[in-house]
Design a protein around this nucleic acid. Structure first.
Length: 793
DNA sequence: CCCTGGCCGCTTTTT
DNA sequence: GCGGCCAGGG
């Protein structure tokens, strides 16, 4: 026995842990060391939230409970000397000795870490893996929806679904609601599918089944009609063995409520639960989490009430506001030191958000430099605004910045159009995140629909989608008849069309229908033998889909390209999953995937996206165009204080994305939806103290000849951008390329995009719009005079 | 069954 | 200003 008493050992261990996590500040350490019991981490923007989560899990797995006094290890004097030396001097300590300091270590498979995006989940997984190695793979780190679907796959039959149930995305649900609306004769002009969808979603969020909803409608005619749609919609989903996004969480809660033994199993399994972005959880997600955490109460939620921007989707700020009421023993930790932004940017953000009432209250500060003032610029119009952004980017790039240092964040996706055009003209490489997504493109949805039907032939909504594309002369009427017959005979629609000749009502198109059923049945057979990518190729061949696309429209090369892109995604999925790659697995991944997940910060290009999509990201230079009353805050929000508050939180999110420089823009006049309006500068801009601002404005356009404004400022941009491009070109790019002629088939090299082949040339003014298929990144459209191209001979 | 022309309407959207 | 959606004619 050594000379140390228990008290000394606890203190020694505490000092050791503080040293182990010495790169974290005091508040971060408190969060990391709190393992047992409820914990609320109020993490301000840029406060190192993810690092805290990763280190907290690392601590749980390697050292266990930091506050425990159940010190059971007997430490030899030599070990104690090693530890003391480690603490006092910069000296190493071996793993065996470290292990002596672990108390009640947590097993990785007991941890459930929930995020909102796949991207956040993957980032978390990667960071856990690099810190902890293989044992990180046993941690469930995933989104609400993939966590729930993973649980449901194991128990779906208890709720009347099969374990290979289909997941409907918002477009599928929309189609289904419209179908229901039609068969119930509900005029969309009187009761729109949009409001029906939102009411159903709202009901599901409140854990109201269609039956319960019906019981609550009373004499309200509108709600009665919605209730009818809800019931029918839910029946159709169940018949199709499908769940919508809301169902994934709802049904998991239902499973937990109806089968307490299942709940208990998961309560015991997930003894430690962590939820990121807690301010964005809705009520049903709250139910899910609280059921799971009820037994052990080891629930750690991380969030920032000031960054709650999804109220419109049912997120309720009350979940974070009331955490302490629900868990009176909860510990609350505020992370208020910001490591991301300059003082000026942070002070501006603080000044804006201070105008909101009903906040948890937080005082973000930073040790970073004051940095540049915030640039507030008023442009003539939206073209000029885009040109201003372009000029700043080209100027900064010529002085050594990378394109990937910049992000343009806007309120509405439509704002990206002018920016895109301007960037193309200036040869600025860019990527747009969101807007139209890969898996939402028509042709991709078609192929996925085929694969879904192969996987689950009762998937009516997907079957409807593809039964007549490519054209098979099977019309709306025929499909409806077949579906009714399927209903009458209590069988699948595929079964009915297989035997179409047996039904009088289907006689006329029976041969077409039977042909289609044979196609699908052959593909189902083939799916049992072939690999996923082989199946996909067979599917393309048998459906003649590419041929149909090409015949459909001249300009469908993009779509054909996307079809091939999907093939490479399938191969990528096969490579990542090896033996376990299969059709249901691929479909699951696809249905829960979004665009932002594919955002790869490594490629050198300017990023454009909505402020919503930018949450959680950071960039050295941020542009915020369209800070105008009526746009941001939006016109609809201005009538309602709580909606203005939500817009203000969104502004706060936008501002706090910036690390070094921030540009806030507005215009004198802006064309939106085909009409021009003059908007006042946004109240959010005006809430920033003037001493933090460097205010500029384009020359007063009223003094110029009408009509010359836009072209003149465009002209100036072009001259400047061509010059910057040359300066940046390091001698590789020659000036004479400006007026070189390009033909289809020419091989060219672009500074940023690499080598590619010209696939179209369209004259535009004195310039040519080239479409180039680049070897590495696919096709891009560029203006030849400014694209910095060199021709390979 | 399929094509076309006119009309509406229009934020944000982690899944 | 653009795209989605429906009605009506071929």
């Amino acid at each position: 026995m050594n000379n140390y008493n228990l008290y000394d050992l606890i203190k020694l261990r505490k000092n050791f842990l503080e040293k182990e996590f010495s790169q974290m500040n005091n508040m971060q350490q408190s969060a990391i060391f709190h393992v047992n019991g409820p914990l609320l981490i109020l993490a301000g923007a840029g406060s190192g939230k993810t690092t805290v989560i990763v280190n907290r899990i690392a601590n749980m797995l390697t050292y266990g409970d930091a506050y425990s006094s159940d010190f059971i290890g007997e430490l030899a004097d030599s070990d104690i000397i090693k530890i003391k030396n480690y603490i006092e001097q910069n000296c190493n300590i071996d793993t065996d000795t470290k292990n002596l300091l672990a108390i009640n270590k947590v097993n990785p498979c007991q941890i459930l870490a929930i995020t909102f995006t796949n991207k956040a989940a993957n980032e978390l997984k990667e960071r856990l893996y690099s810190k902890l190695g293989n044992c990180a793979n046993d941690i469930w780190a995933s989104t609400f929806h993939s966590t729930c679907s993973r649980i449901l796959r194991a128990h779906a039959e208890k709720l009347g679904y099969s374990n290979h149930f289909t997941i409907y995305d918002t477009e599928d649900s929309k189609r289904l609601v419209k179908d229901c609306q039609k068969s119930l004769n509900i005029d969309d002009r009187i009761l729109s599918y949009r409001s029906i969808i939102s009411e159903i979603s709202h009901a599901k969020d409140n854990y109201l089944s269609s039956q319960e909803f019906k019981n609550n409608v009373g004499n309200d005619f509108r709600l009665q009609k919605i209730s009818e749609v809800y019931s029918l919609y839910q029946n159709k989903l169940q018949e199709a063995d499908a769940m919508d996004f809301d169902d994934l969480v709802l049904n998991t809660v239902k499973l937990f409520k109806l089968f307490p033994e299942v709940l208990e199993y998961y309560q015991n399994k997930f003894k430690y639960i962590l939820v990121d972005e807690y301010q964005d959880t809705n009520h049903i997600q709250y139910m899910f989490i609280n059921l799971l955490a009820k037994k052990y109460k080891n629930l750690c939620v991380v969030g920032d009430d000031d960054q709650s921007i999804y109220k419109f989707r049912g997120a309720t700020i009350e979940n974070i506001m009331n955490f302490e009421k629900n868990y009176p023993e909860a510990m609350v930790i505020r992370l208020e030191q910001n490591y991301r932004s300059t003082k000026n940017i942070l002070n501006a953000a603080n000044a804006v958000i201070a105008n909101n009432v009903n906040r948890k209250g937080k005082n973000l500060w930073t040790n970073n430099d004051a940095g540049d003032k915030i640039n507030v610029h008023t442009a003539y119009n939206e073209h000029d605004e885009a040109n201003y952004i372009t000029n700043v980017i080209l100027d900064e790039v010529s002085r050594g910045r990378k394109y990937s240092d910049f992000a343009v964040l806007y309120r509405m996706n439509t704002q990206s159009n002018i920016l895109e055009k301007t960037f193309v003209k200036s040869g600025i490489p860019y990527r747009i995140i969101g807007g139209f997504r890969f898996y939402e493109r028509k042709e991709i949805k078609d192929m996925i629909a085929y694969l879904n039907v192969i996987n689950n032939p009762s998937d009516e909504i997907r079957l409807r989608r593809i039964i007549n594309y490519p054209k098979r002369s099977i019309g709306e009427k025929t499909i409806n008849t077949a579906m009714e017959l399927a209903h009458q005979h209590q069988t699948s629609i595929l079964e009915i069309i297989k035997r179409a000749n047996e039904f009088e009502d289907l006689k006329r198109s029976s041969s077409k229908l039977m042909e289609f059923s044979i196609l699908i049945e052959n593909l189902i057979e083939a799916s049992k033998k072939l690999s996923l990518s082989e199946l996909y190729n067979l599917l393309l061949e048998k459906t003649n889909y590419i041929k149909a696309l090409k015949e459909d429209k001249e300009n469908n090369e993009d779509r054909v390209e996307n079809i091939r892109e999907l093939a490479s995604n399938i191969i990528k999925y096969e490579q990542e999953n090896g033996e376990s790659a299969n059709l249901p697995g691929f479909l699951e991944e696809v249905s829960l995937m979004t665009d932002i997940d594919n955002y790869d910060s490594k490629s050198d290009s300017v990023v454009m996206m909505t402020i919503h999509s930018a949450k959680g990201l950071e960039f050295p230079v941020i542009f915020l165009p369209g800070f105008e009353e009526g746009i941001f805050p939006g016109i609809q929000a201005t009538y309602n204080q709580s909606e203005v508050d939500e817009e203000r939180r969104l502004a706060y999110v936008g501002i706090t994305r910036a690390k070094e420089k921030l540009y806030i823009l507005n215009t004198d006049s802006r064309m939106l939806y085909g009409s021009t309006s003059r908007n006042k500068i946004s109240r959010f801009t005006q809430e920033i103290p003037s001493e933090l601002i460097n205010k500029t404005r384009a020359r007063d356009w009223k003094k110029l000849e009408p009509g010359t404004v836009v072209s003149k400022s465009l002209y100036e941009t072009r001259i400047q951008s061509a010059q910057s491009a040359r300066n940046f070109g390091q001698g590789v790019i020659h000036q004479e390329i400006d007026h070189q002629t390009y033909n289809i088939g020419d091989i060219v090299t672009h500074k940023t995009f690499g080598q590619g082949i010209i696939i179209s040339v369209k004259p535009m003014g004195n310039d040519n719009l080239l479409e180039i298929n680049f070897d590495n990144i696919g096709s891009k459209k560029l203006m030849s005079n400014y694209a910095k191209l060199s021709k390979n001979s």
